[in-house]
């Protein structure tokens, strides 16, 4: 997950930073040894990445039990047809999308604002950056356990804080959908906002300063500069963070799993996500074949969402 985020940060953000990109100059040593050097990556990826992914498709056409993995019974597309009428699957699908939206949108907007502020010259800028990156260094398990305590109904900090505003104690773990999803989303927001802010900051620092000077001469105020220069220049970086957040929310597992302590995602499945559902089907109900169908459907859904979000981001960027 982390690795994916970072890899993309480089790929896409790289296109913004350096207009004078140097073509790599290779050494003359064109040697067969090069294949040996790049081989480990491809061997490990083929065995542990590509092959499992493809084989998941084959398994999804079978009935396989976790208790007897050697016996595969052909069922054709039965697993897929039953998916689309399955209430729990559809619930998990919509939950994944709504939690994804309410965690990614505020997170990225705040990160953009924070990055803008971090870009000023100031005292202690390194200290701020390190502090904001501490949530990223905290594991998702620890984070969720901590937030579980903050959100606990009787003695939790959040309810204590809210009582000043006359709010009755909320049982967040089992609250109505929007409340408990908000709580789950806040875990994601806390962990990733600082990280995304740093990614944006890196992008901002690569914007040539002359652009701002020219705009200032033309009489553009700071807000106009932010909208007309910063945002458009950052578009590849923003696109990247949107894509990565989309992939990230498709994979959300630990937060709903540990927040509601179980694979149901709340008493009524208020925040059961797709990965949680996959885990429940495969490792609690032992339906590996069905879980494989869930996995492949997720791959398709993920691709569709990535494309939609990328298009939306691009369109907004142009208008803005």
């Amino acid at each position: 997950m982390t690795a994916v985020r970072e890899a993309h940060a480089g790929v896409l953000a790289g296109t913004v930073g350096h207009p004078r990109k140097r073509r790599p100059r290779y050494a003359l040593i064109g040697s067969k040894a090069a294949y040996l050097y790049v081989a480990p990556f491809f061997v490990v990826f083929a065995i542990f990445g590509l092959y499992p992914l493809l084989y998941t498709g084959w398994i999804s056409l079978h009935d396989v039990s976790l208790l007897n993995i050697n016996k595969m019974t052909w069922v054709g597309f039965h697993n897929y047809t039953s998916l689309w009428t399955n209430h729990f699957f559809l619930n998990a699908l919509t939950n994944t999308i709504t939690i994804g939206i309410i965690s990614a949108v505020p997170q990225l907007l705040m990160a953009l604002g924070i990055a803008h502020l971090l870009n000023y010259r100031m005292k202690g800028s390194i200290a701020f950056r390190i502090a904001m990156l501490m949530p990223y260094a905290t594991s998702v398990v620890a984070t969720t356990l901590i937030f579980g305590e903050l959100y606990s109904r009787d003695f939790g900090f959040v309810n204590w804080f809210l009582h000043f505003f006359g709010v009755e104690p909320i049982n967040w773990v089992n609250a109505p959908k929007w409340q408990s999803q908000l709580a789950v989303a806040s875990i994601v927001i806390w962990r990733w906002t600082g990280y995304n802010a740093l990614i944006y900051l890196a992008g901002m620092q690569a914007i040539p300063h002359e652009l701002y000077e020219a705009a200032a001469i033309d009489g553009a105020n700071r807000w106009q500069q932010f909208r007309k220069i910063t945002i458009p220049s950052l578009r590849p970086t923003i696109l990247f963070t949107v894509v990565v957040s989309t992939i990230g929310s498709m994979q959300m597992f630990a937060e709903p799993y540990l927040f509601g302590s179980g694979t149901n995602g709340g008493g009524n499945g208020q925040y059961q996500t797709l990965t949680l559902y996959l885990y429940q089907q495969g490792w609690q109900y032992n339906h590996l074949g069905f879980a494989a169908a869930v996995a492949w459907t997720m791959l398709v859904v993920c691709l569709v969402l990535v494309i939609i979000n990328a298009m939306l981001t691009n369109a907004r960027g142009r208008r803005g």
């Binding site: 890899a7 398994i59 791959l299």
Partner: peptide, 17 residues
């Protein structure tokens, strides 16, 4: 670089087997 586009969680079932 392209391999990073594939969510690794989706291959866990055969990997587990």
């Amino acid at each position: 670089l392209g391999t990073t586009l594939i969510p690794p969680q989706l291959g866990v079932i055969p990997l587990y087997m």
